[in-house]
């Protein structure tokens, strides 16, 4: 794997992050989250990057002037240590804590929460290139952790706060959206991005078909390719 990742924000200094084999590396979904969130927030505020991995989402939003106060957490202590290192190297002030979902933030509230907790079917994670040395404990339909974060999110948002979350079609999209609609008055889709399935997953099409039949994942076959998608949503009351 690469040991560095760089992200360029137009007109700003490049962010260069160190990576670690045991910490989830930034993906296209991370970049989609940054784009969708930055286009939806007009007023800077405190921002929690939940499931921060190496820190790219929060760092980019901070550098764009959206996160006036930056907080980040991850269930992996190695990720939290990496975020602290990356924050120092990029001269970004960030309070990073370790723990599952909202446990590190008991009693605290934020203007914005960006959820980047891994949300794909555990059975897909096992055959994907994304979770080789990192945890994915989202359940067979990939929705467990995301739904948990959605349900708790209102308790951690300030008045007028917004909760941003990605929905990957390699998880149970319908379950995630219906849980968001049950706890938030407003749930809006901000963006839709289609990806091709990585080559190393193609030998596992039977598994994919089985999960698709159960409603746990959605994909399409077009142009001779297997396509799946990431939607970015915002929820608020």
């Amino acid at each position: 794997m690469k040991d560095k990742y760089s992200y360029t924000i137009e007109g700003k200094e490049k962010i260069v992050l160190s990576l670690h084999e045991n910490v989830f590396s930034p993906t296209g979904t991370s970049e989609e989250i940054i784009k969708a969130v930055s286009e939806n927030i007009s007023k800077p505020g405190s921002l929690l990057d939940l499931g921060c991995g190496s820190g790219i989402v929060g760092f980019a939003l901070h550098r764009m002037g959206i996160a006036s106060g930056l907080y980040a957490s991850d269930i992996s202590m190695q990720a939290v240590n990496l975020v602290k290192k990356n924050a120092k190297e990029n001269n970004i002030e960030c309070e990073a804590r370790d723990g599952a979902v909202f446990i590190p933030w008991s009693g605290e509230k934020f203007n914005y929460i960006v959820d980047d907790i891994s949300g794909i079917s555990q059975e897909i994670a096992d055959i994907s290139p994304w979770f080789k040395n990192t945890m994915c404990e989202s359940g067979v339909d990939g929705a467990d952790l995301v739904v948990e974060a959605i349900k708790q999110a209102p308790l951690y948002l300030l008045d007028g706060g917004k909760f941003f979350f990605p929905v990957l079609s390699l998880s149970n999209v319908d379950r995630i959206i219906s849980s968001a609609e049950s706890v938030f008055e407003n749930v809006e889709k901000l963006s839709h991005k289609v990806w091709t399935l990585p080559d190393e997953m193609k030998p596992h099409m039977e598994k994919l078909k089985e999960l698709n039949n159960k409603g746990f994942v959605k994909y399409e076959e077009k142009f001779g390719l297997i396509l799946w998608y990431t939607d970015i949503y915002v929820a608020y009351n």
């Binding site: 296209g28 289609v194 990806w195 091709t196 077009k222 142009f223 390719l225 396509l227």
Partner: peptide, 13 residues
């Protein structure tokens, strides 16, 4: 690039 190529195909479709 490859991602935008996919976007081109989806738009044409």
């Amino acid at each position: 690039d490859s991602l935008n190529h996919l976007g081109i195909l989806i738009s044409l479709d």
